[in-house]
Nucleic acid binder design. Sequence first.
DNA 1: AATCGAACATGATATATATCAATAATGTTA
DNA 2: TAACATTATTGATATATATCATGTTCGATT
Lengths: 231, 231
Amino acid sequence: MSEDINTGNCDSCIYKSILFEGLSSEELRIINHNKTVRIFSKGEYICHEGDEIKRFICLKEGLVKLYREGKSRHEHIISIARPMDFIGLLGIFSNSNYLYSIVAIEDSDLCLIDLESIKSIIKSNGTFALNILEKMSSVSDQVLQIQIDLAGKQLRGRIAYIILLFANQIYKTNRFDLPISRKEIGDLIEMRTENVIRILSEFRKDKLLKIEGKTIEVLDMELMKKISELG
Amino acid sequence: MSEDINTGNCDSCIYKSILFEGLSSEELRIINHNKTVRIFSKGEYICHEGDEIKRFICLKEGLVKLYREGKSRHEHIISIARPMDFIGLLGIFSNSNYLYSIVAIEDSDLCLIDLESIKSIIKSNGTFALNILEKMSSVSDQVLQIQIDLAGKQLRGRIAYIILLFANQIYKTNRFDLPISRKEIGDLIEMRTENVIRILSEFRKDKLLKIEGKTIEVLDMELMKKISELG
DNA sequence: AATCGAACATGATATATATCAATAATGTTA
DNA sequence: TAACATTATTGATATATATCATGTTCGATT
């Protein structure tokens, strides 16, 4: 386990302009004194399902996955979160315990802010309150949209959808390294590992994708979009 | 179209104690003057996908469905909302337009509050802000949980899950009238109408359910729970 | 370099689900 | 009441997906 660090200054943080814009210097001081900045290595747990929620978590750098252990079936990945997402998003203000686990899938730089401090500032600063409401709403909404989008698709459509999500939303390039295994892709879009592999191979044979291990290149973006939408 | 009415007094509203508890009398006056109370008949649209979001919608009585028109496939019902749900929930603070349509599936009594008025009170009253954040978070979270729960199940499990949702969450009784058609159940849990009917018949033959048209009685609650969890 | 386990890959087969077809029941309108 | 449309139902079949079996590749460890 790495040590907690509190070096990062809020003034230079990417979140300052998004979230903490209108805060008074006193409010910023509170945040600054009640936060922990820490690097989590790939594979390291950030929280476990059932843990008490004590921190408001911001992802500064890296990539994490939120997932639930299925009682009956396999692990279900709820979301892959990237910087600017408030990864403690869902239910953080309505539940006292996490409904999912969070694990770093790349080395990640996180800022953990004491939740009570955030709540006290919400109470005292309405603009901040509205701001945080908008941001949380947006992130939760995105997660839900993805679940709904996926629910209506069959395997080919789901694979195309998730590849495009990585290409266009997360890495913003046609060529990228998958941060997760084929099994984890299956956990994310509810299909078996074998079928993930099979359909990726199909897309490779059909010249839609170039695949070398974890490196994926989207060769025919238009057709991928069509498969994702209609699939 | 029925006429807009503004008779309901906020003092006697079920939402007052949940949501508007700590408001000053001036703030309550603002709400009271910027709201519309209206009955929507069964089948009537409350909003259409794409409409601009201008109101904060509370369901006082009745039942509504939120759904998206699928581009490729069928209609997808996102949620059946009941009183105490803020049905304009998802993205109301982060989007300017509705991502789904809302239709009354029973005669429903709604309170439509001007969204800007709500926002201005959020800014001026931190306790209200935190309160609304908690409630919105809770409702969004529930919707997401249901989607995630359903994603991992096969047909029998999904039918059991949705029957239990109606029995335990919505109507709170073992015997109730389904407010929606078999086709709509299919739209809600992503399966074809024929299979909804088939599996309901199966459950009837297995003495799990008693079915007379739209009236459903859960005969073996324990087994239904097991099917729902493991399915 | 040898060994081990995990991830990747492909084919054969079983199972789950959708689709198609046909009919019955129900409600709605003229 | 007749005529019609919508919903509910069941069976036969096609398709999609999961499962099983087996082998290969890759990376970590010794």
